[in-house]
Design a protein around this nucleic acid. Structure first.
Lengths: 291, 291
DNA sequence: GCAGATCCATCTTTAAAAATGATTCTTTAA
DNA sequence: TTAAAGAATCATTTTTAAAGATGGATCTGC
């Protein structure tokens, strides 16, 4: 009863995902020496080295890159087997979903409220990031899928249109005519979310259409922080209406609508085409589409 | 690091294949108590019973039947992963092929002479049986594929035409005109291979076309035994020309050709459609088709 | 109906594997 | 120069798998 096993490949995949043996060990609830040893055993069995070790972690070798898709397929297939035959018929396994911060704030709560109670046996992990970073994570098998700003053009990915957002300018309730201010070249301080956030491009385009550049900006890493600052009159920002909807209702902020062409952004759920869908993922997709 | 593993499912599949814990243990080079225990652990983890135990072995439950395809897919996928990444790039894994006795005698040696040396890392197992038994074994995932007498009509199976055989009547060299004897109703003792052998149907049809029944037959379990008896003048038999070709050349037996309609039988290689092909199987298929 | 053969479950013991914790070495950042 | 982070190594413990022996139940041939 020798031989490679799915748990070995899961360990390998965890190291690949984190680019670090130590981090993978933490995620796997074990100890670094253990991961090191089992990884070495796996490499010895295969007769190839899967990672290049260096001083800030490990990176996949060519062979490692070849193995990674198999590791995921095996993981998914095992999950499917468990679901198919388990006594209660429940979906089980893991689900790693990425999301833009805005989608996480405005849309995920409702989605998860329907998903989680119905699939208690699934380990759900939500990771937020920029469209660019999330796309990369999906491509590298680190995520099962992700909500990103459309459109998506990569051949490796398939995308499911999920939400349509209307970008609006957001200001404190005191600002009555923000667009006027913009027309006159007086741009208040702009709060932007993070480098790489795709909505920034929309904002820049919007300003460029008015002969303005994105200057006087302030980068802030949390949505609530931005909204708080804007509410306090420290500046303005641009984000999907759905995110600030409740703040508007509470009178904390005011919004200013844009022309449809500038405003409309589509959120799509992307997945690798070549990745077998786990039951947990299938169930998630059906929750997405059935809303 | 808990959880079900491919090795557990291989153990399960071995028990399913043999219908017996004891036999599976022997095949797996371990002891019965071990298999019993691990199987129980697997069932506990899944929360279902996979086998019904009884006094002459075990049989799959409904849940067990559902799990079996996954067990095989996981096994094959793991083999593919190993092949894809192993240092030498060699095909590895296992190959379980079934064959009619006649095909095994006449065709397999040449096939294996090309396959085995080129794929030293593959565990090859050849099992002989009747078309009916082999078909059943393929359907039950006990074999990766099998050479059987065509045509095949089951939807679950796909078939690759592999050899065309010409059935001939075989007698000792002294019999000059066996067909004359048949025409006169004087049937010599007929050696037949085994109940379920599909060539028997051809023989019966041939005789029926001449108003004769298959009587005075003698069943014998080995091809070489039959040929030896026929050569010694104890009776006649019917089999593919390719099987007796070398005996004819050595002057040990004489053959008598039949009308093309009676003579032609096609040997096909059958596989389950839903079974992922292992690299070892892919290589075998390419050897079959490249001749 | 009895002796022997199968077959599976259970239990105890032994051997192998995996996990842990401590330590060392190296490099990068402060 | 000192931390900090990351990985390898090693001794130790824990866990898991394998082995071997035994018992009960059922079937077979006599």
């Amino acid at each position: 009863m020798i031989g490679m096993n799915v748990s070995d490949l899961n360990l390998f995949a965890a190291v690949a995902r984190h680019g670090s043996i130590t981090k993978a060990a933490r995620r796997l609830n074990t100890v670094q020496s253990n991961v090191t040893t089992r990884l070495r055993l796996l490499e010895e069995e295969l007769g190839v080295s899967l990672f290049q070790r260096h001083h800030h972690g490990v990176t996949l070798t060519r062979s490692g890159h070849e193995l990674l898709p198999y590791a995921h397929q095996l993981d998914v297939l095992l999950q499917k087997a468990k679901c198919a035959v388990s006594a209660d018929g429940a979906t089980r396994g893991s689900l790693r979903v990425g999301s833009m911060e805005t989608t996480a704030a405005a849309r995920l709560p409702a989605l998860l409220r329907r998903y989680v109670p119905a699939h208690r046996e699934v380990d759900v992990a939500i990771e937020t990031g920029t469209t660019r970073a999330l796309t990369q994570a999906v491509l590298e098998y680190r995520l099962d899928g992700a909500f990103v700003a459309g459109p998506v053009e990569l051949d490796e990915l398939e995308h499911t249109p999920s939400f349509v957002e209307e970008l609006v300018l957001v200001s404190s309730p005191e600002h009555k005519s923000i667009t006027d201010a913009l027309e006159q070249g007086k741009i208040p301080k702009m709060f932007v979310f993070r480098v790489g956030c795709s909505y920034r491009q929309k904002l820049e385009r919007f300003l460029a259409g008015r002969g303005l550049n994105l200057v006087n900006q302030l980068e802030m890493g949390t949505l609530e922080g931005i909204i708080g600052c804007v509410s306090a009159g420290l500046g303005i920002t641009m984000m999907p209406f759905s995110v600030v909807e409740r703040h508007v209702k509470r009178g904390e902020v005011a919004i200013h609508r844009l022309a449809p062409d500038d405003a409309r952004v589509e959120t799509v759920f992307i997945m690798r085409r070549d990745m077998i869908r786990s039951p947990a993922l299938e169930a998630f997709l059906s929750v997405i589409s059935s809303q």
